[in-house]
Nucleic acid binder design. Structure first.
Lengths: 146, 146
DNA sequence: TATTGTTATACTCTATAACTATA
DNA sequence: TATAGTTATAGAGTATAACAATA
């Protein structure tokens, strides 16, 4: 017997639907990342740096959905692996500016094709319109005030 | 200068858009969970149990997006906290059947109102149609084959 | 005083392999 | 042989507070 409840079915729970959808999309990305010994978080950092050029850490944290203490550790590792460089900002010495290196860029370029193929695959099966609509709705959801 | 790349803008990256949207929705839920000393994962388990009644662990793992080894540990804690009970299935003795207790149900009921308000809030700001559409698209995304 | 970032700490989840018991 | 679940272990992220340096 099903529990008597007015709770929305779990498949219509927004947090869970978002989590499951992400698991689906990330599965092939994770296979790729495993092959190059990179975590999801590092990959997000590379992606932000590739797009933004040189940025301060707070921006990376916000864009890549990471907390600053996590980012500190992640960037330390990535710096030791030669994927990023860091320098103190000359105007505001509190700021650390981070930049992707040639090696970091090479890793990103060699593997973003995989992301692209995954995206193309989804577009082919769902249609470009629906995918754009989904991204629009996700963006709109972020602007909801609580 | 913006990096020269044909990579889709990070705000249009599906995995990141899903992650950010989830962070937005989960923020108020996390506040609620923190007040009752419950992790997101435990909350998902409660939600599955409330909806499904007595189920085997593999089902919980699938529905709540958890790996079995994580679930083993989580259920052990929840059992010691009196939120769930476990028993061996009499027909197939490999299976462990899990059920929510009165206490677990009470915790769930006392707090799901918060989830409901969050949902109502989103519905009010985005509109019911858009929210339904979003859930439909997320569900459709899950059926994409890679 | 507020902000940027680091360090320290405790907790938790993730991921995998090896294992037990049962089918 | 395959499946359900447990245990062990390594690795990593999360969350918070306290702190240093700078604005």
């Amino acid at each position: 017997m099903k529990a008597q409840s007015h709770t929305r079915s779990i498949s219509r729970s927004l947090p869970i639907a978002l989590l499951r959808a992400r698991e689906t999309v990330m599965a092939p990305v994770r296979d790729m990342l495993q092959g190059i010994q990179m975590t999801e978080q590092k990959w997000r950092v590379l992606r932000v740096l590739d797009e933004f050029g040189e940025v301060e850490q707070s921006t990376i944290a916000k864009e890549a959905c990471l907390l600053l203490p996590s980012l500190t550790r992640i960037l330390r590792t990535m710096e030791s692996e030669g994927q990023v460089t860091r320098r103190q900002d000359s105007h505001d010495k509190r700021r650390t500016m981070v930049r992707i290196t040639g090696e970091g860029h090479r890793i990103f370029e060699e593997n973003r094709l995989v992301s692209h193929e995954i995206y193309a695959n989804i577009e082919e099966q769902m249609g470009r319109h629906k995918l754009d609509r989904l991204l629009d709705l996700l963006e709109e959801l972020r602007s909801v005030k609580f």
